[in-house]
Each structure stands twice: as C-alpha cells, then as structure tokens.
Design a protein around this nucleic acid. Structure first.
Lengths: 349, 349
DNA sequence: CTCCGAGGGGAAAGCGCTTTCCATTCGCCG
DNA sequence: CGGCGAATGGAAAGCGCTTTCCCCTCGGAG
C-alpha cells in the first residue's frame, strides 16, 4: 500500500477511465453494476481513500461543521455535542469541536480556524453578545446557528431553550414551597443565559406578588463547580443566610451543595438548592438536586440539522429560530417536606 | 466582501505578485517590512482567509488531528480532550472529536472519515484490542497514539496510566480498611482498562495474603451511571451483600452509590464504595467518593504532542510509550471511621 | 560609475478531485 | 442490417495554494 493512492491509480488498476471511478464514488447509479464492482474491488485492493481536501477544493466547502462551546467539561455541552455528532455523522460530516472556555480570544481563534477550514457551518454558543464575527462568517458563505443563546437577532438562526420560562419555573417552585430569602447564583456578567434565567425568576416573583428585587443576585467568576464552591462559602459566611439558592446551572449548584453539606448545614431544611440543566450527576448528588431540564441532545441535533440544511430558502419558509421549553424536575434538594430519615444503624444521611 | 477572496485578489489589491503574498503568509521574514505591511493591509481590507484545503492539498496533510473517545459524556475523556485541544491549538491545529460510544462500527466510520480528511494524526482509545485499522492508518502516513490503552504493541505509540497499579492502590486501601467481601464492578468484557484494574486489584489481594479469587467480578454492559445503577440494584438484591465495591470508573461508582443510598443502605458503614478517575463530581457525590486519580489533561496534552511531533526519529530516540502513575484519593465513601453525624437540628463539625 | 545582491515580479507546475464535452463502442430494437 | 441510446473512454479545465526558476530593478558599496 503506497502512501498515497489516487483516483488515477484506481482507474488504471480497474482498467477504467478516471471519470468512471469518480462516477462510482459520486453517482454510483449511473454506472453498470459490473464495472462498479470492478472499481470497488480495485479501491479495496489498493486501499484507496478519497482525499477530502481535493474534493472540497473543488466543491468549495468542507464536509465538516464546527461546534464552539463554552466549556467541554460541562455535561450540558457534551450532550449537545452528542446530538450534533449524531446528526452530522448521518450525512457523513465531521464535527470539529472547539472549546472557547469563555474566552473571547479563544473563540476568535477558533472561528478563524474554522473559516480557514471552510467548514460547512458553525454551531456556537457565543461567549458574549457580539455577533459581528458570526455575521462575517455568514458573509463568507458559512452558515451559523446560535446554540442556547437567547437572541433577538433575526438574521442568524438559533436553537435555544426558553431560559426565562425555565427561571420562572424554578422560582415559582421555590416560592410555592414557602422559601423566603432566595438568592440566585449567576456567572460572569456577560452570560446571556444566566441573565435570562434571572429575569424569568424575577418575573415569577412579580407574578407571585413579591418584590422582584427580593431575589438577590450573586455573581461568581465561572459557571463551574469551583464557582459554586466559592458562592457556597460566601453564603455560609453571612449572618443572614438565604433559605434557598437557585443556581444558573447544575455545576454551580453541585459546588454550592458541596460547600453547604461540608459545613454541616442541612439541605433542604436549612438551605434549599435548585440547579439548571438536569445533568446526569444532578440526581446522584449528595442531596438529589432539583433542576430545570433541557432537551440537550435534541438541541444539538436540531442545530446540526439546521446548519447542514444551510440557508436554502430559510428566509422564506425555513424556520430560523427554534425555542424549546424546559421542564422542572423536583428532587429532594428543594422539597419542603422533611425528607424521610433513613438510617442504617443511627446516622442520618 | 465577495464570497471567496483568493490569494490572487490580495496580490492584485496590494499590487504585489502572487508569490509575495504567499511569502508573507508562510515565510514573513524574507519579505520587506514595507511590502509585508501593504499585503497585510490588503488581506484585512478584502477579508481574505486562507483556504486550508488548498494548502493541505499541496502539503498532503491537514493541520488537524483526530481524537476518538469511548464516551464524550465521561468527564475523564472531556478532560483528556481539553488537554489535547490546548496542545493542538498552540500549534494551530484543529481537533476533530469523534465519539465511538464503544461501538466498533462507529469507530470504523470515524477512522475512515479521519483518513479522508488526511488528518495529521489520530489519538484514540480503541473500543477493543484490534489494532489492525490503526496500523493501516500508520501505513498511510497518519501517526497514531493510543490513549489510555494498556498495550504491548511496540509499533504504536501510547500514553497511558498504570491501571494495574491503580487497581492495586484501591484494593490495598479497601483491604487495609478491613473490608472483607469485596466486589469489583467492571464493564463489558472487552474493556482493557477494566481488565487491568481488576488484575492489579487481584495482585494486591495476593500481596495481602488473600485469595485473589475472593475478589468477585461483576460485569455490566456499559461503563456509565446507568450501568452503575444496575450493578447497585443487583448487589442490593443479594442475600449476602459485599461490604465494599470497587468500580472500574467513577460513573459506575456514582450509579452504585445512587442505588445504594436510595435504598437506605449506609455508605460506607454497610457498603463502602471506591471509584476510578476522580472526576470532578466524585467529590460532590452523595457521599464523597474515594477514587483513583489520573492526570487527565496531561494525558491528553502528552498524546497530542506526541502525535504532532509525528514519527520523526521516534524509532530511535523518541519515546514511544508513556505511562503515568495514578494516585489514590481517599474520601468518606470508603473510610472505616464512622462519619461525623450531621443533622439539621444539631450539626457537628 | 560600475557591480553586486537582495527584494520582488512573472510564469509555471502540480497537489487530487469533479465535471463537462465529445467521441467511441457496444447491445439491441425495429 | 441500419441506427439509436446507454455506458464508457479520453481529454481538459480549474478549485486555491505553495514552490521553484529565472529575470528585472534598484540602492548602496567599492
């Protein structure tokens, strides 16, 4: 097997013309079964593998799509990625996964890279609200779909979940359970999703006849477990602790939970906790976590399908914005009822 | 901004020759500062983005590497991916992430795709021990590095962690704590890592003067939380429950833990649990989980560096196999000491 | 003023593939 | 048996870039 077998070698080996090999590869129906078999046999014997770059140089576009996420470590995004990957592989597209880690600079570098690769499209959860670089991509013919980014921009496709509704679900639930002093832990100021969830929660306060300002916001620098630990410690240090904490995502919630449990404070009796995303680990936490579930894989799959379909007719009939509805999952971390006490020999849990 | 700006347009706009533009891009030092500036200005004005496919068609190799993992949902792999991505982006390489989901078929499809893309190299945690397709890649000039796959194959580079030592660490610890009836939960039969961890654990039994056969193996179909839940239920249903469970990874352990805690069985008093990987969520679990830590990002980074360096001289001086040493992290889930009693009414500590 | 060498121009080849345009060769129908 | 259409051959262009070769043009050193 020579390092590089070209379509021309295959043609020679199968004793057909170069064009025929190309036809077998791209329009197999217009070639006789017999010759097709002969060509395929030659491909097999020679170990020929089609060169994507040459192909894409002609077609002008790669059979790959880019996925830029805020944090690969967040199970929310890996589930989205899974959905994307499934949809992409069904049509033979590769997925280039990029992790911006909330850095504008890294995001920019990744977008440049994807532009150089002439990817078919880009799925992105942008670091901030600046959509200019994305519009530039679109001008270059690379379609863009915003993922989980509540946007009002009509010119860019998006797939999102109604964060405001989700925030409202959580807040309504906490209020209904009778919690009074509620704090919402959010991430860095720029994070759109968190803002919307807070907004939804405040609306729920209003609808419940409560002062929206009564929902305090506690921002932390990062939306991960470390950020949650930090938030938890801050809350514990207060004289007047909140009796319920709503976190912008489950990683934060797990961090808060860990800090709180470690300090011997009972959840939910002394402090209830609710998260967002309903990641797999939420149910397995120290105290099973109440959370707001989003159809993660479906988000990814839908976004991928949109970007693969491209902009054909999307201005006319194509849907440009898809919004899913979240769902509240109540678990022990926020139930007012005293949890049943389970003890083997004596210790509670 | 026209859909496609080529190097030729840039040359015309900057009033230089085509070759000069190419030089600015690839060997900037051999062009005068003045003309370089002029060319860069033209690039900027026209919004030129270099076409990677054309470039790679000439060079014969893409500036991208493939990463094939068993499960993107497993934080172990996302951390590895993070390390890979960092190392790759430092040298301007893209990372194509592929998820085999333990399926040979999916793995094959992904490898085909990567071969078509003419990626620079492939990092892979193979589904099984069949290395033939990987050898084929190497013959095509695509270097391969096995990740977290204990191999004896001298002809393929690898980065791994000493799974046997890790298994021994966990088992030794459990024995030292005085546990008697220990079960190890492993995954599907083919999974190499689990096999080695079991082997290491049995060796530890032997060294402790115990019968290695005393360590029972309980295989489950998948190495994730669902698999763990299943294992947990099976163990709970037994008349004679084990007093300690060692799981082949943390996802399994979290699943077992969840099943056990839900049934009101105390951990570790009635059943101790130890996992493997020390993922971020292990510390935040219902009962903080004892686990075996692996340098995940470092594994990814090292593997990426190896594959980017390629096979240049690796037969001679280049290291072809790197093995890291794991580390035991003891938490409450396996401590013999009774945990401090924490209850809302009268929290200690 | 001459000469040299560096910076740059211009042209060309070629990476592997797709696609198009004829020209050719069949097998087969009328 | 003439002719028709389907299946293929053969040739060629061109996607955007890198690289090489050779020639030209200066500015500065001698």
């Amino acid at each position: 097997m020579r390092p590089s077998v070209s379509i021309r070698d295959v043609a020679a080996h199968a004793k057909v013309s170069l064009g025929t090999v190309s036809n077998v590869l791209n329009r197999p129906e217009m070639v006789t079964a017999a010759t097709r078999a002969r060509v395929l046999a030659a491909i097999d014997e020679l170990g020929f593998v089609r060169n994507e770059s040459a192909r894409q140089l002609r077609s002008g576009m790669a059979r790959a799509i880019g996925l830029v996420v805020l944090d690969v470590g967040n199970p929310f995004f890996t589930d989205v990625a899974r959905g994307v990957e499934q949809a992409a592989s069904e049509v033979g597209h590769a997925v280039i996964l990029c992790n911006s880690d909330q850095s504008t600079e890294r995001q920019r570098r990744h977008l440049d890279l994807l532009a150089e690769q002439r990817v078919h499209g880009v799925l992105i959860t942008p670091v901030d609200g600046t959509l200019t670089p994305l519009r530039q991509l679109e001008q270059r013919g690379i379609s863009v779909v915003l993922v989980d980014h509540p946007t009002t921009a009509a010119d860019i496709c998006s797939v999102a979940v109604d964060d405001r509704a989700g925030g409202a679900l959580a807040a309504t639930h906490l209020l209904a359970e009778g919690y009074e002093r509620i704090v919402m832990v959010t991430g860095p100021p720029g994070v759109h999703q968190a803002r919307e969830r807070l907004r939804g929660a405040r609306e729920a306060f209003r609808r419940a006849g409560r002062d929206p300002a009564g929902l305090e916001e506690l921002p932390v620098p990062s939306l991960n477990v470390a950020g949650g630990l930090r938030a938890g410690e801050q809350l514990l240090a207060r004289r007047a602790r909140p009796d319920a904490v709503f976190c912008a995502n489950d990683l934060l919630a797990l961090g808060v939970l860990q800090a709180v449990v470690r300090a011997g404070v009972a959840v939910p009796e002394e402090m209830a906790i609710a998260g967002y995303d309903d990641i797999e680990f939420a149910a397995a936490a120290a105290v099973p976590l109440t959370s707001v579930r989003q159809p993660r894989q479906l988000i990814g799959r839908t976004a991928a399908e949109m970007v693969i379909a491209g902009r054909e007719g999307s201005d006319g009939n194509g849907r440009r914005h898809v919004v899913f509805t979240p769902e509240l999952v109540v678990r022990e971390s926020s139930r007012r009822l005293r949890r049943p006490i389970r003890r083997p020999a004596g210790p509670p849990m």
